[in-house]
Nucleic acid binder design. Structure first.
Lengths: 350, 350
DNA sequence: TCCTGGATGGTAAACGTTTTCCAAACTATG
DNA sequence: CATAGTTTGGAAAACGTTTACCATCCAGGA
């Protein structure tokens, strides 16, 4: 109970005060601000006037408590420090806020225990849905949400759970364009720096690359397939490892743009030039890709489509009373040619 | 009211069920999970066991409603797309979550109306405190929060409001080091690309630069003081404007790193070399600064200090019963020399 | 043995909404 | 003019907690 008369300066005003100020009942105020059509326009006007005068702001927690809907979406990402995710967050937030939802962000930093913590945080706050945009997959996590009947949306993975949907990214199309582009330029020795392979999507990208290579009639060299971790440092380290190999590829494709930027840096340190010594292709097309030196040729994956797709399927899954499976939508990718690709270096050309 | 028996698979279990499962009263459960010391250890053990078995998760909204504390901090930033802010968010989140707080992010994108919207969102969610890390200042915003007696923390600006504190960044120290560094190399013609000047902090940085220039005995040239907007595009455009000038500076300082990366790009497009043709210094020292080509010399401002300082003073301000003013703390800056600075170009040297 | 007091558990009110159900008032029809 | 039907407003319950207050129980002192 609150002590005495609550001497705090501005005790938060509630629907109650608005009602008495507008000389109507509490119910009328509630109906007015929720736009129930049957309210008498005269009373409604009085209510809105009082709302404005008293600077009334509805208390979302009380609302959530009674309605059972928190109007909150969880957004779980890998790493907020990778510019791809802020771009994704921005679009996700835009889509969510437009529909009256707030968003709760959790970054896993690729650590399973942080993932668990994120899930718990979201459960406590009673999120109405969760978008797992981490390009990886934690079975345990999913169970928690499924147990509470909370809609979940994933990228790539197709879990067999109620109220979950997934966004299918067509990695192959963009990667195929990239490989073709390199092949046309004359490259036959193409390396690939993947993301952390325990991430399902990273594996998928690598497999798509391998497949595209085969389509182009190129035999993949396992030494040129190195695992990175989708960070700047990881890209740099991976490239340094490649540079220690007895034979070098003439072109490198990367699992994301941050990796590619790391590669550019490793090449800079080794006094090698892009695209003269190495051609380079990234993935994601973050805004920064246009600003690297030289500007990065990369495969664009629209994070706007991703974000909007996620919000849309979350919403759809909430509305449907019955638990349904697999609301799939496809996300396209395509090559954006800039200046990190060119003819292969003579000494290494076929 | 809920319909009939709520046929939803797993109706959220509450403290009530835990109580009956552990054969104690709900009060005992509440006290146990809130670690009230007077609970009989035997009962406490039973409670914890039930909590684990039933997978009970407390409902934060109900908690918030009765306690009046939402355990939620608002974090208002300019633009999530600028990598400085994700780094800040990461630190802020870390500090907040460690203390049991959740964070609500709002980006203003420099638009006043979005600022207003953010404030309203935070008010609705009943945040316990707001960190305005937007390096700008909106009087109206502040009033809203002050009216509800919500603690606020700012950067730089020193508003005269109850329950607000501010973090004072010592821009001058780092900028001074930067100017000295350039002066020692022989630069006398130094330009500055500022942030949007209606942002208080951007103005402050520019003033600090001007002051440092004077200390180094250099007369500022107003043509070389151009306004950017703290984005990549803004930096590029600003540099392009400078390149159209009849006389060029030999070095450029930027109000943030994104601007500097934009400048590098403009220079690349104009086939000018850094640092051969222009020396360049950024500000912030985002992680990416180490990875530009060539790596960017920049002034480091610790966003960890910033974030932790913000959380700490928010917390301090909440605990103090009386409204108090000005919990100041100082944030240091210092120059990190990398490879974008060198001797001035001969033709322009003094 | 009885009473007092300290510990500890239980009951119920309160937080600020939404929403169901009912009552009242008005409209239209016979 | 009366009655049925249709709006529209109001009272009260419910959401899941915390916590003030009260009841109970046990130990120790008189």
């Amino acid at each position: 109970m609150r002590s005495k008369t609550q001497t705090d300066g501005a005790a938060r005003i509630g629907i109650h005060k608005v009602a008495s100020h507008a000389r109507v009942s509490i119910a009328t105020v509630s109906r007015t601000i929720n736009h129930v059509p049957t309210v008498n326009p005269v009373l409604a006007a009085r209510v809105w006037k009082s709302v404005a005068e008293l600077n009334y702001v509805p208390n979302t927690q009380a609302r959530a408590l009674v309605s059972g809907k928190s109007k909150l979406f969880g957004l779980i990402i890998s790493e907020i420090t990778n510019p791809f995710f802020p771009e994704l967050i921005q679009e996700f937030e835009r889509a969510a806020v437009a529909r009256g939802y707030e968003i709760l962000i959790g970054s896993t930093n690729y650590e399973p225990e942080k993932m668990e913590l994120c899930a718990r945080r979201m459960l406590e706050r009673n999120v109405d849905g969760v978008a797992i945009m981490t390009f990886g997959f934690e079975e345990s996590l999913l169970d928690r949400f499924a147990g509470e009947d909370i809609p979940v949306v994933f990228i790539d993975v197709t879990p067999r759970h109620p109220r979950s949907s997934n966004l299918q990214v067509d990695y192959r199309a963009g990667i195929y364009e990239g490989v073709q582009h390199l092949a046309v330029l004359g490259h036959r020795k193409i390396g690939f720096i993947s993301g952390p392979l325990r991430l399902g999507s990273a594996e998928t990208r690598k497999l798509a690359f391998l497949d595209c290579l085969r389509c182009a009639g190129i035999k993949p060299q396992s030494a040129w397939l190195v695992e990175g971790d989708h960070t700047l440092d990881g890209g740099r380290d991976a490239m340094q490892r490649i540079l220690q190999l007895p034979e070098w590829p003439t072109a490198i494709m990367c699992s994301n743009d941050m990796t590619a930027i790391g590669v550019q840096h490793a090449l800079f340190e080794a006094d090698l030039k892009v695209p003269a010594d190495f051609s380079l292709i990234g993935f994601d097309d973050i805004h920064l890709a246009e600003y690297t030196i030289p500007p990065l040729t990369t495969v664009r994956m629209s994070c706007k489509d991703l974000a909007q797709g996620a919000v849309t399927s979350l919403l759809a899954n909430m509305e449907s009373t019955q638990s349904r499976f697999e609301t799939r939508s496809k996300i396209n990718t395509r090559l954006i040619v800039r200046q990190t690709t060119g003819l292969p270096k003579m000494s290494s050309a076929i």
